[in-house]
Design a protein around this nucleic acid. Structure first.
Lengths: 109, 109
DNA sequence: CATATTCATCGTAATATTGCGATAATATAA
DNA sequence: TTATATTATCGCAATATTACGATGAATATG
């Protein structure tokens, strides 16, 4: 036990859950917000900005990269991470679809 | 170690992460979608609908209830769970704020 | 070449999540 | 009251996440 039974759910439900999991940590939210503000940055900047160890930040960056929300380009000795606009819109849509599925005027409680 | 360092982040970042965590499981997405579709339901329905044990569903319902997304009213021997419209809009806004923070036309990569 | 800088990865400890059987709690029905 | 139905909670096992020191890989600088 202890493992999520993905086979019970639809492709879309699993996808949304997987994406939501990436947002489910304040450090990753902070990284995204910083990337939006700075419009690019490197790992080192983030170690200064947040108070986490370099290894920890690198790990969070990998998760953001794996889900496709950010991408990095090598810039000499350091690395430029930035938000992937296409994926960003895609993910925004995923959430919006769920939220908009609930009618504003509910006939229930 | 192993514990999230919430003190490093803003109130809002922690709140969004906490809410996202609730969305970070396909069963809870499925429950929400079912509640939207059915416009009310009980735990028993969900055991039929999803393939999880009653105890497991009850646990997921509690998490949804704790974050305020759903609320339940006693209906005889069973229970009516439904989506809390106010909280739903609130949470939608939290995500929208983050998503809208990223300008469509990025000057970066 | 040797050294420094920057980021990724590995290994590990601490903690959190997931799933479920068993059981408790509550309310209805006979 | 006794039995039935419905949901919550407890306790446990399996797995996942979080954090970080240590180390590795790659590139620049002297």
């Amino acid at each position: 036990m202890g493992v999520t039974k993905s086979n019970l759910f639809t492709e879309k439900q699993n996808e949304l859950a997987k994406v939501a999991k990436v947002f489910a940590h304040p450090a990753r939210i902070a990284i995204l917000e910083y990337l939006i503000k700075a419009n690019s940055c490197i790992n080192g900047d983030l170690v200064q900005e947040l108070g986490l160890a370099q290894a920890t930040i690198s790990q969070h960056l990998r998760e953001l990269k794996e889900i496709g929300l950010i991408k990095g380009s090598i810039e000499g000795v350091s690395l430029n991470y930035c938000i992937d606009a296409v994926r960003w819109a895609e993910v925004q849509n995923l959430f919006q679809e769920l939220f908009d599925g609930f009618p504003k005027i509910s006939g229930c409680c």
